[in-house]
Design a protein around this nucleic acid. Structure first.
Ligand SMILES: [Zn+2]
Ligand SMILES: [Zn+2]
Ligand SMILES: [Zn+2]
Ligand SMILES: [Zn+2]
Lengths: 139, 139
DNA sequence: TTTGACATTGGAGTTAACTCCAAGCTTTAT
DNA sequence: ATAAAGCTTGGAGTTAACTCCAATGTCAAA
C-alpha cells in the first residue's frame, strides 16, 4: 500500500491532484490507515495510469469518468459504445485542429506581409489588415 | 452615434460583451447621453471591428489590448514589434496544433483497432490500450 | 397611462483542472 | 524534546471571456 505522497511521486502528479480526483469521484483511496492517511493499492495505481493515459489522448476528466464506469463493468457495455465515444472525441479534436489551422493560415499571411523593419508601424500591413476588412485579400 | 444595442446588433455581439470590453479597458463608449446611455461613434465601430478580426485570427483579449495600444500610437512602435508579436502567436498556435495532432494520432489508432461490434466490451482494444502501456504499440 | 423595449449598475455564475492555504494531526530523526 | 516532513480537512483562488441577474431608470407608442 502506498501513502498519497508515494503514489503521487510514482506517477509524477501532485498529492493535490490525487485528492482532487477523489473529490471528483474518479479514484478514491483504497482504504485509510488508523491515523486517517489515505492508502492506495496496486489496483489504484493502475487506475491512475489509465486516467493519465486517457488524459494524454485528450479525454477530459468528465469523459474519463465515463470510460472508468465502462471499464468497471465491461460486460454491460459494448465495443460499439466505446468506439463511438472515442470517435466523438476524435471529431472534437479535428474541429479544434480546423479552427487552429484557420488561425494559423491567417497569421502566416499577416506575418508574410509585414516587413518587420525597425521603422514606424504607421504603414504596418498587419495593423492595416486588422483595421480594414480586405487589406490582405486585396493585395 | 449608436446606442449600445444598435452597435451590438450591427456587430452581432451582445450588449453584455460591449460592457465587458469597456470594463476590461478594450473599448470605452465614445460618450454618454444625458440619460446615461452609452453612445458610440464610427471610430468605436471600427475599433470593435479590429477587435473582432483580431479575435478571429486567434488573439486573446489581453493580446488585443496590446495591439490596440500599438495601433493608437503607431509612430512609437515598429513593424518589428508587431511582427514579432504575431510570430509569437503563430508559434503558440502551432504548438497547440501539434498537441492536438498527437491526440488525433492516438485516437485514430484506438478507433482503428476497435471492432466496434455490439458484443461485450470485455475484449475492447481501446480499453486495453488505456489499461496497458503498450497494448497498441505491441500489436 | 400603462405597457414594452431599451438602458444603467454591481456583482454573481460558468467551465476545467487544478493549486494553494491555514490550522492542525502523526511520525521519524536528531 | 523538538523540529522536519508528511498527512488531514474545507475552502478559496486561478484563467478566459463572457453570461446572467436584480433592481431600477428612460422613452416611445397605443
Ligand atoms: Zn513595415
Ligand atoms: Zn508591419
Ligand atoms: Zn470489439
Ligand atoms: Zn472495442
Amino acid at each position: 500500500m502506498y501513502r498519497i505522497g508515494e503514489l503521487a511521486q510514482k506517477l509524477s502528479v501532485s498529492t493535490d491532484t490525487l485528492r482532487y480526483y477523489e473529490k471528483h469521484k474518479l479514484l478514491a483511496a483504497t482504504s485509510r490507515a488508523d491515523n486517517g492517511y489515505r492508502l492506495y493499492n496496486e489496483g489504484a495505481l493502475r487506475i491512475m495510469q489509465f486516467i493519465i493515459r486517457a488524459k494524454a489522448v485528450g479525454f477530459s476528466l468528465k469523459e474519463i469518468s465515463g470510460l472508468l464506469s465502462i471499464k468497471i463493468d465491461k460486460a454491460s457495455h459494448s465495443c460499439a459504445e466505446v468506439k463511438s465515444f472515442t470517435e466523438q472525441k476524435l471529431s472534437q479534436v479535428n474541429n479544434k485542429i480546423a479552427e487552429l489551422a484557420c488561425f494559423k493560415g491567417s497569421l502566416e499571411l499577416l506575418v508574410a506581409a509585414c516587413c518587420g523593419g525597425e521603422e514606424e508601424a504607421t504603414h504596418c500591413s498587419i495593423l492595416s489588415a486588422l483595421e480594414n476588412v480586405d487589406a490582405i485579400i486585396s493585395k
